[in-house]
Amino acid sequence: MTVNGQPRAAEVEPRTLLVHYLRDSLGLTGTNIGCDTSSCGACTVHVDGEAVKSCTVLAAQVAGAEVTTIEGLATADGLHPMQQAFMDCHGLQCGFCTPGMVMAATSLLREHPNPTEDEVRLGLEGNLCRCTGYHNIVKAVLACAGGGA
């Protein structure tokens, strides 16, 4: 598979989950493990450009795919516009849910470039913030959409 643009090849046990491969084998610990039951979205990454919960995908299922983690969003020129929007709007408190939120939000904007506030809230329903900071998260996503990101 390709991870953040780099080709990666590995022999893994069939039961290896994508999130464990990313964190334990590749050291990409930006992707968090939260609920571990595909509810909380902390482990959200992109597979071929779409948000998926990497705790519920076997690494072997995405062999050959393009995987992007939070570490792969920023470029040499700086933060991804969504990351910048989260910073500008204070879309985080403790930060645990943030990588998953940003990955879900970028996937959402790819499918709905100009979402309404309701669409953002529904689009992020699979990502839980336990600091209850949704207000600013939604604001960040709307700001990023408005900024043409």
Partner: peptide, 9 residues
């Protein structure tokens, strides 16, 4: 069903 990430898989 579920949420967008679930519906992608």
């Amino acid at each position: 069903i579920g949420d967008p990430a679930v519906r992608h898989r």
